[in-house]
Write a protein that binds this DNA or RNA. Sequence first.
DNA 1: TGACTATGTTTGTCGGACAATTGGACTATC
DNA 2: GATAGTCCAATTGTCCGACAAACATAGTCA
Lengths: 252, 252
Amino acid sequence: MSDAKALFQPLEPAPAYKRLCQAIEDEIMAGRLKPGDLLPTETALAEAFALNRSTVREGIRLLEQSGLAERIAGRRLAVARPSTKALGRRASQALVLHDVTFRELWQVIAALEPAAAAYAAEVRSDADLKALKDNLEASEEAKGDGRALTELDLAFHELVAKAAHNRALLLAREAVGQLFYPAFAVVVTRLDTAAERLLTAHRAIAEAIERGDGEEARGWMQRHIEDFHRGYLLVGLDPEQPIASVNQQDAG
Amino acid sequence: MSDAKALFQPLEPAPAYKRLCQAIEDEIMAGRLKPGDLLPTETALAEAFALNRSTVREGIRLLEQSGLAERIAGRRLAVARPSTKALGRRASQALVLHDVTFRELWQVIAALEPAAAAYAAEVRSDADLKALKDNLEASEEAKGDGRALTELDLAFHELVAKAAHNRALLLAREAVGQLFYPAFAVVVTRLDTAAERLLTAHRAIAEAIERGDGEEARGWMQRHIEDFHRGYLLVGLDPEQPIASVNQQDAG
DNA sequence: TGACTATGTTTGTCGGACAATTGGACTATC
DNA sequence: GATAGTCCAATTGTCCGACAAACATAGTCA
């Protein structure tokens, strides 16, 4: 039994619409279809693959959803690169459905963010730096408004990651970053010292990045992330609960 | 012009098949549809949404591709959690299409793997440990076979991540880990010292995890990852080239 | 009881059809 | 000559109806 399973491949008994999707996907991954290239029209595809247009359309939906193709100018279908945002959204969604806990997410950003800060200090551009400073300024003004400050904090961290000029890093943290929103909002809102500590850390990180001091940036970011964890505990939330339940948890 | 873009939202007259997908997705994310639940049949959905079955089928394809639904027993459609494997595959694909470089991927791994090793040392189960030891044993025997050793190395790192019992971490590294395969194969094959160094590191990591010594595990893992980077350079590959081009690069 | 068959259900695929939208060519107006 | 309006062809979104194959179930037969 197990031998047979190892011996024989699935032999492609997939429905036609899946095979069509796979075929186009292969063309894209092989580089024969480049991002931006227009795909044939549905009727043309139907003819080429000897399938009905309905079937072709189903296959196209798969491509569309995987981000490998998108409607250009509302109409024609063009090859595209899956966007970081969309992928991050999918990943976040999946993590929520898997009841991922705060601890799990925190451990990931605790690993990624300090690294991002360090690399940012090494390779940031002037535009990156300006964006960080603008964010700092806005944060100073939003010090009282928990909701706004939360969004600015998330934005700050994303800007740091962008400054590191590393798309893999950006994608990885995008997936987990968004999920912290509710948790962070609770901490910032309930802990009156949180806003000031946050700003201190952000200022220090931005400054270290400006000076090009990677180790300093890494260290501040690490403490900043650990601070978040402490805040989460102080506010009375349980790190072992699914992140999706933050709204329900009694954080009184 | 730029004002108009900021003023007006897209207004979202999305096609029916997208709205259907969104509607079901919302039900899932709200928890009213749980993983495992059977979705209505296509005809039932068509009736419920007052759409044609063809249109419903297009919407279903979107759900299917996003991993939120899958065919159970070949036929009926059931709510599902997007699998880590599938998500990782999509992410890998996206990274390749974005011409992500070795450097970018390596920086992510360099941040994640040491953390994974440290956490693994703290929370690993006996089964995790056994899997690691089995892998070590197999690796000893495959010392000569570059191809096999490459696969075993990737497996070892995945086992470490699994031992950390952190699904977010697992997902993040899955996306980048697979992409290293060709790069790693080249290094192991061309550098005759690589196999031995690799085994030494793996042994030390496994031992530290067994002892529950997180810092030791982290340290060894970190050096192990840095070693990989050195090997990549020694073999003559350029870290700033897209990872997808490893096969083309002259690594002589 | 267990194997077998009949039947209805559900999906995969097909063919054709039509309205709405869009891009482009063409024309009219200032 | 540039702009606006008009028309036409192409393309997509949606619908309708149909049928074969795979499957689940119940009923049948040994």
